[in-house]
Write a protein that binds this DNA or RNA. Structure first.
Lengths: 167, 167
DNA sequence: ATAAAGTCTATTAAGTAAATAGACTTATAT
DNA sequence: ATATAAGTCTATTTACTTAATAGACTTTAT
């Protein structure tokens, strides 16, 4: 799994929309300006997010984009899957197909990759736009709890360098 | 982070060498044949592994490749970092540089990515070639313990589908 | 009607990944 | 010594993907 520039742009744009949730549509140009993104490229990205029913558009003058769901209900996993594809650390499940049904060793290797994926899924499924934009609790607007939030983040022993290297 | 075809090839080749550890050099052609890898491409990969001092070569007739360290001491993280670069889920630390030192929200996003990376590091740092090639314990040859092995793998609740989708 | 917006399709430019080719070097065997 | 079996090195090709741009089209507010 790798977040592309496009994926980052998508997240940045959504953060803008999350901040202004329930305040009407925002123009592409404004989003682009606010985050310093290439306007025309962002246009395509927003279209994609719209087709995936994550945002909705208002056409014509006074138009723009807005979230279709509350920031608490939009998780990073969803966005990243949409823009950059599967969260697995291998290109395509196909790529490993040969490995999976071969011998035990290949299966063991596959299992490690699966572990990596599952770990990523757990973290990204649990991080919402609300979490990221510090929309304090999420309880304010939604009766729904969904509290765990940055839990994963603070649980880890903060080994920012892993084994010392930058990565 | 994303494992490339090349990275996979490297791991496959190393698994062959791990199986035959301490049994002398193995020819590129044989490794390629055994795993069904493109011979000429594998050549370049082995060169890279050699420069990284993970394998060593024997030149001339009767030559070939062999591991420079025991399979217990070669971790997937090392190989993947070498071939595919940093384990982080963003292309380059540079890519996010702007985000890091901007506002709080961007930092929060960055932190989530960091969590993903750290999770990947933990799993891949802990998986050795020996683990993958079921070289039973590792205690046999090395006094060193290093037992945790497939621990990470079996700890997870085996949600192979994450939220249902294939990824 | 006009201007302000999103929509759609196509194209380009640059970079990267995978693979291949071929000449060169080193060691073994006889 | 010579032939042969290997690894080494450099270059090139091909295909694909990513990021970005361009421009004509459609919808809506005023």
């Amino acid at each position: 799994m790798k977040i592309s520039q496009k994926g980052l742009y998508a997240l940045q744009a959504l953060m803008v929309l999350a901040r202004r949730y329930n305040q009407g549509a925002i123009r592409i140009r404004d989003i682009a300006y606010e985050e310093g993104l290439p306007e025309k490229f962002l246009e395509l990205i927003l279209l994609e997010l719209k087709n995936a029913r994550i945002v909705e558009s208002v056409r014509g003058a006074k138009g723009g984009y807005q979230l279709r769901r509350s920031p608490e209900e939009i998780h990073l996993s969803e966005i990243i899957r949409l823009i950059d594809g599967p969260l697995a650390p291998f290109g395509d499940a196909e790529q490993l197909r040969g490995l999976i049904d071969n011998d035990v060793e290949h299966r063991a290797l596959y299992q490690v990759f699966l572990d990596v994926r599952n770990a990523a899924v757990r973290i990204l499924d649990n991080a919402s736009l609300a979490d990221i934009t510090h929309q304090k609790s999420g309880l304010s607007r939604q009766g729904k709890s969904r509290k765990k939030k940055t839990k994963e983040a603070t649980l880890l022993p903060m080994v920012v360098g892993g084994r010392g290297r930058d990565e």
